[in-house]
């Protein structure tokens, strides 16, 4: 944490950059981090809390090992994006915005990824999956579940 903060000036203009770094390092913004950021940037914890909860990029809870993001853009919507999301919700047993109990998957939605030509789009971690359908949901999830098994072998 100190290492991250050392790279930034003591100024509010750094806040969003700092939060990006903390989120990338820990996968969420831990409460202790908020206190340290508050001391370093000289802004109150409540203000930081207000700002970080305003933006979709930051989360106060740890995210799962794999992040499944389903695009909710207009083009994806008219091509069946909501059905794909429902199928993910059903298969994972969670609603969008939540993480599975085994901490393997976090299911999220995004307003638009700007890949409207190949929608509905699903991004798992950094992999883009084009033209998703409800039939593709299970194979997509299996791929990442398998990776988990391979990691353990």
């Amino acid at each position: 944490m100190q290492k991250i903060l050392a790279e930034f000036e003591n100024s509010q203009k750094e806040l969003i950059h700092v939060l990006h770094c903390v989120q990338a390092k820990f996968g969420y913004i831990p409460p202790e981090a908020i206190s340290e950021i508050s001391r370093h940037l000289k802004i109150t914890e409540s203000e930081i809390y207000g700002i970080l909860t305003f933006y979709a990029a930051f989360s106060l809870e740890p995210r799962g090992k794999h992040r499944v993001t389903v695009c909710m853009g207009t083009a994806c919507h008219v091509r069946g994006g909501p059905k794909v999301l429902e199928e993910f919700e059903r298969r994972l047993g969670i609603e969008a915005g939540h993480t599975t109990r085994d901490k393997q998957f976090t299911l999220e939605t995004v307003a638009c990824l700007g890949c409207c030509a190949i929608g509905p789009v699903v991004v798992v971690d950094d992999d883009y999956h084009a033209e998703a359908t409800i039939r593709k949901v299970e194979p997509i999830l299996e791929k990442y579940k398998k990776e988990k098994k391979n990691d353990q072998d």
């Binding site: 509010q12 750094e14 806040l15 969003i16 939060l19 990006h20 700002i51 933006y55 979709a56």
Partner: peptide, 20 residues
């Protein structure tokens, strides 16, 4: 940081300043 309204110019500047 994932907010649609930051495309509005005064919001965008607030965001650069490290605010909501």
């Amino acid at each position: 940081a994932g907010s649609f309204v930051s495309g509005e110019e005064t919001s965008l500047m607030a965001s650069i300043e490290g605010r909501r």
